[in-house]
Design a binder for these strands. Structure first.
Lengths: 141, 141
DNA sequence: ATCATTGCAAACACTTTGCATACGC
DNA sequence: GCGTATGCAAAGTGTTTGCAATGAT
């Protein structure tokens, strides 16, 4: 069900965004595309490190910051401790389970407010963060 | 324009929430009520420290965490670096200027989404975070 | 006298930075 | 060969924790 990409496709996608497609960058990009779990840096590190033992966390930080600058990923601040990275670019909201920490996408989110309040403001992004307890964790409480 | 409270009123408000009204807690509470700027711990510390030189940041952290537990304040994660505290309990959203760091309240925010997606989930809170450049910072760019 | 609050210092956790090495065109 | 990417170690920053001292009833 998860989309698969060839290395050449991934390279092209990065180049189109003005990013040099180095091996590590491709691997991080691939991970993000194939693991839509809003991962932490540590999630990415632990997984990729198995295949690429020389990979360092610094490189992952560098790569994600570059991706964010180029608009390829969004950094979520829904978790108060560490950043979560989202490759999904179409607008949607997020639900975070305060018990297990999992983050779910929430689709078809509509946000409305009196625009007069922000007259003259330049709106860059709108995030909707919902916190609570997910279905799975309901059971086990 | 900012509401003023007597010490006795503040004490009562804290007691009603099940919080022992110690001197420091009253001061932090008062600060939050009279400075609706979504302050950081450091904001609070720098201001209160002038009048109460013995005050420590640990106490502010303790106090704010207690207030949050008791539902007196909300912790905002709109800033990626440090927590912001909001005493305003009625539902509203927030706008953060990425240039000057100021946070503005946004009223009459309506969030709609397909509830079926979160069927069986327990929703605790909904936050709307808007990021961009505020009116003031537009001018100076 | 007892129990809660306070506050210092240290520990923690996440992220960034400096700089030397390695890699790719 | 030159410029960029990488990665280690250290520094930086916000927050929490352990524990002793203080304060309130």
């Amino acid at each position: 069900m998860v989309e698969q990409y060839t290395t050449d496709e991934l390279k092209d996608m990065l180049r189109k965004r003005g990013i040099q497609p180095s091996f590590h960058r491709i691997q991080v990009f691939k991970y993000l595309l194939e693991n839509r779990i809003h991962p932490t840096v540590d999630n990415i590190y632990r997984t990729l490190n198995k295949e690429i033992p020389t990979l360092s966390k610094t490189t992952i930080y560098n790569t994600l910051n570059l991706f964010a600058e180029k608009g390829l990923v969004e950094i979520l601040t829904i978790d108060e401790r560490e950043a979560r990275y989202d490759i999904e670019t179409s607008p949607h909201g997020h639900f975070k389970c305060v018990k297990c920490g999992a983050i779910y996408d929430v689709w078809d989110v509509k946000v409305g407010f009196d625009k007069k309040q922000l007259k003259g403001f330049d709106i860059g992004s709108v995030h909707v963060y919902i916190r609570g307890v997910c279905k799975n964790c309901q059971k086990s409480s």
